[in-house]
Design a binder for these strands. Structure first.
Length: 203
DNA sequence: TGCAAACCATAAC
DNA sequence: GTTATGGTTTGCA
């Protein structure tokens, strides 16, 4: 029960802008319930509120708490193509088990690399479309880097925030890697590919 | 290239 | 329970 969101805990919502982009986070007791970003405060906030579970009380705060401040800073870091500092606990416990597996796998895609819907499904079971569906309803963008998941032919696939944004995010994550590599995901291996594989066939 | 069929966890009825 | 829905993939003309 320690991980569940449901209960008597108020969900706290915070927003903050950084270099012209607004970021938002909803959290409960140092756990992230949802995160998002948008061109203005209204969008960022709207995204967040739309993801909150119905019938759960929440409150929007003007000044970020210490924890929220850290999370918001990290969201901004990811957005602008930098490494995330520290890891945050996501409120996954109430989500379907397979959804949890997909999200936990996705967070492990390293900066500078992408993987495919099919690669993820091969690594953890299930099918590519199911993975795509879960990405489409990712409540933790961009901290769960669903923008690093693309189609098997290295075209973009989709993105909740719009494909333009997906390209921008990936464009900032170029690190000059040349070869695919395999990363260990609890007992299974996930193949990841340099983000350049995607960027080069956009022109 | 383009199209059709197989695929698979979820959400919605 | 059952059906509908994709941010897919693969095979084949």
């Amino acid at each position: 029960m320690a991980n569940t969101v449901k209960g008597n805990w108020m969900i706290e919502v915070y927003t903050r802008s950084s270099d012209g982009v607004w970021f938002g986070v909803a959290c409960v007791r140092q756990q992230i319930v949802a995160s998002s970003f948008g061109a203005n405060q209204q969008r960022a906030l709207g995204n967040i509120l739309g993801m909150l579970p119905l019938n759960e009380p929440f409150q929007v705060f003007h000044e970020p708490s210490g924890f929220a401040k850290t999370v918001l800073a990290s969201l901004s870091n990811v957005y602008f193509g930098e490494e995330v500092r520290g890891d945050f606990s996501l409120a996954l416990a109430d989500l379907p088990v397979y959804t949890q597996r997909v999200l936990k796998t996705t967070v492990q895609i390293p900066l500078g690399y992408v993987t495919t819907y099919g690669s993820i499904s091969k690594a953890i079971g299930g099918g590519p479309r199911a993975v795509g569906n879960i990405m489409a309803s990712n409540h933790f963008a961009p901290i769960v880097p669903c923008h690093r998941v693309v189609k098997s032919n290295f075209t973009l696939g989709g993105y909740g925030g719009g494909l333009k944004v997906k390209v921008e995010l990936l464009g900032r994550e170029k690190r000059g890697f040349l070869e695919p590599k395999k990363i260990e995901i609890n007992r299974h291996q996930l193949t990841v590919f340099p983000v350049e594989f995607v960027l080069k066939n956009l022109a």
